Structures are given as C-alpha cells and as structure tokens.
Simulated scan of single mutants.
Amino acid sequence: MSIPVDVADLARALEDFGAGYLLTTRDGAVKVVSVAPTLSDGTLTARGPGRGTLANLAANAQVTLVFPPREDSGMTLLVDGTGAVEGEDVQVTPTSAVLHRPADHA
C-alpha cells in the first residue's frame, strides 16, 4: 500500500518519523548511512554522512531517504531527490515522497 506525499507537505509527514537512512549509489553499489536530516526551505540537510557518501554524490546525484516506522506494521516514508555536497554535508532537494507498507501489514 502506497500513499503519495506532496513534497510541499513533507514537513508535516516528517513529524511522525525519527532518524532515517540516506542511500547513494556508485558503480552499481548502494551505500546506506544513518542520518537525522533537518528540513528548511524545502531542502533536507544531512550533516556529515561521511566521505563515501560524498564521493558517491560526485558520481550520481540521485538519492533516496528512508524513514522507517516507529511501530510495527507502520508506514515507511520514502523520499527521492537530488543530493548536492555542501562542505561535509548533503543537501537533498526532494522530488517525490511516498508513505509505504506492505498491504498485508494493514
């Protein structure tokens, strides 16, 4: 089951979640790091995710943020976007978002 989230409503959706995971790719390999991004002016900032993530973004700007549910059978928030390196941080401009869980968890 998937429920689209308007990017303009992302701040409200994020209130139901804690830390998440930033996924980047390079040469077919996925790198996953734990992040606690903040949202300001429509941009998510992930502070200090590490050199591997920053290197991945130099090769491929497409990212996904995954915010797991706080309770069993809850919804996961998935945010796709474009990442840019700002010093040691990553700025993510969201392009789409969805709340998701398997249908059998309803």
Rank of each mutant, 00 (worst) to 15 (best):
V66D: 06
H105D: 03
T95V: 12
V66Q: 08
E15V: 03
E86K: 09
P37A: 07
A59L: 13
R47T: 13
Y21W: 09
L77F: 00
R101H: 02
A36G: 10
G87P: 01
G83A: 11
L65V: 06
D41S: 05
T53E: 05
A61R: 11
T24L: 01
L44Q: 02
P49R: 11
V32E: 07
T82N: 08
M75T: 15
G52W: 06
V32K: 09
R101V: 09
Q62D: 08
L14K: 02
L14R: 09
A46G: 07
V79H: 03
A61V: 12
S2G: 01
E71P: 00
Y21S: 07
V66S: 08
P102Y: 15
R51T: 14
V66R: 00
T53G: 01
R70P: 02
T45Y: 11
A59H: 13
G81S: 00
V90R: 00
G42I: 09
V5Y: 02
D16A: 05
G74V: 09
F67L: 11
A84V: 15
A13D: 00
V90A: 09
V7R: 06
L99P: 01
A58P: 10
S34W: 14
G42K: 04
L22M: 10
A97E: 13
G74M: 12
S34N: 14
T93P: 02
G81Q: 02
T76I: 06
T53D: 03
L78F: 06
L39R: 00
A13Y: 00
G81I: 02
D89M: 10
